[in-house]
Write a protein that binds this DNA or RNA. Sequence first.
DNA 1: TCAAGAAGGAATGTATACATTTCACTTAAG
DNA 2: CTTAAGTGAAATGTATACATTCCTTCTTGA
Lengths: 261, 261
Amino acid sequence: MHSQSDLQDGARTGELDAPTRSVSITEQLRCGILAGDFQPGERIYEVNLSEKLKVSRTPIRAALQSLAGEGLLRHIPNRGYYVQEFSVDEIVQAYEIRATLEGLCAKRAAQLGLNAEDRDIIERALREGDLLLQKEELSADDRSIYGEINAAFHSAIHRAGQSRMLRDMLRVSQQVAPSSHRNVIAFELRDVRRRHDDHHRIYESILYRDGGRAELLMRDHVETVKISLIRSFSREATSPDGAVSSRTAKGVSSREIRRVK
Amino acid sequence: MHSQSDLQDGARTGELDAPTRSVSITEQLRCGILAGDFQPGERIYEVNLSEKLKVSRTPIRAALQSLAGEGLLRHIPNRGYYVQEFSVDEIVQAYEIRATLEGLCAKRAAQLGLNAEDRDIIERALREGDLLLQKEELSADDRSIYGEINAAFHSAIHRAGQSRMLRDMLRVSQQVAPSSHRNVIAFELRDVRRRHDDHHRIYESILYRDGGRAELLMRDHVETVKISLIRSFSREATSPDGAVSSRTAKGVSSREIRRVK
DNA sequence: TCAAGAAGGAATGTATACATTTCACTTAAG
DNA sequence: CTTAAGTGAAATGTATACATTCCTTCTTGA
């Protein structure tokens, strides 16, 4: 994908095209937070960041305010910004919300129909997933790749829903700290296979323009992820040496008490 | 000019306790936008506002960024802030989204149960609504009052859902410019009665802890508002002299072309 | 020893000056 | 007359200085 149609500036700097420092830093920080560069509940100091990123506090503040609006940060008026913490319960809630919204989005996609581009993307995601999941076992890389495939499938349907508000909310519901994508790819193979099969059926129902079925299937699909997540949490609680995502465990478990306020 | 030393914040305006100018102005502007003080699509100039509100551009910018995050304003990097426009289709979408979210919220409320306070509020809303809707006809004041009653009912359930993310999203879905509350109270009496009866049944299902029924009823309840809204829009399109909400008509009709872009 | 209060530093909130971009208008060329 | 480029004002983006708040720590008194 080449740079868009017209850009006069940005090419000069040689870096990625950023309209302003504020949005550039916003994107940078969002990636960092979602990647887990910051601890949940960690305070973010403006001066600290401004020195590290070599810009003044003004664009830093703008970025922090934006991210607070997205729910990634928490702002307390005279006390600064903190990385939003999510309790186990809140993560489960986020999945419930996402399930209903994804269901609605799939329904709309079915009613509105898919354009050629999204159809291609989805079919490719389905084919590549079929291929990948033939393996007896999945390596960490394989899981990461399937994570991309999964994201591509859902993103295409998000686009197909053709609703700005819906897309914004879906984004927020998926931005629940370091737990979101990293966890989804850490489940048992038969669960992954089952969910990939869900994708097939969802796509089918959308093709047939069956909005009701698409909604039902999609909602249940995401609810299934929620259930798996709960299972994984309870496993983690019983056997604390789980090789999977010690970082995630640290992020969400038993931090409710240490809340800022 | 050392105006900061001369007067402390709030002393001059005598307003309620505001932690900072930024949040005070944010609330002020939000009210103004929802009240229709600004035209949809209207550009908002920082200097203009800063002169009018007698503060520097800094807190103004902070407020505008916050409101953009809430979806009330639209920000284009070097081109300023604009009051978000909502096409008829987008307003309908917002109601679809709200319907699913309210449904989920009602389900959670049923599962979690109501506390005494919210139960009281809801029962009072039901009683007062019963009383008000016995009238043969509703005056503008009556409709405004029922708007309050309706808001109280839904707010209580929003609280009962006990989910920060859900509440945030419900707020966003209801902030679709001047169209939201003003319209709801402008429908035919029998529709209002029907929807008030919905409230009774929803409350009942929540009391019985029937989450599935609560969700179904609540979702359909809001969908009904959506349908009424669509009806009112098409009436408006055919007979342009509708006494009801000329302001609303101006806000949403045939402005899709004049998008900022 | 403990508690309450004062003082200091450090962080955020605000104001303002400066830099950059945008947009409209003018002007000149075709 | 139309179109294109250039110029200027005005608006937004950024940097920085100052004001206010908060928090820690030290002191002082009981």
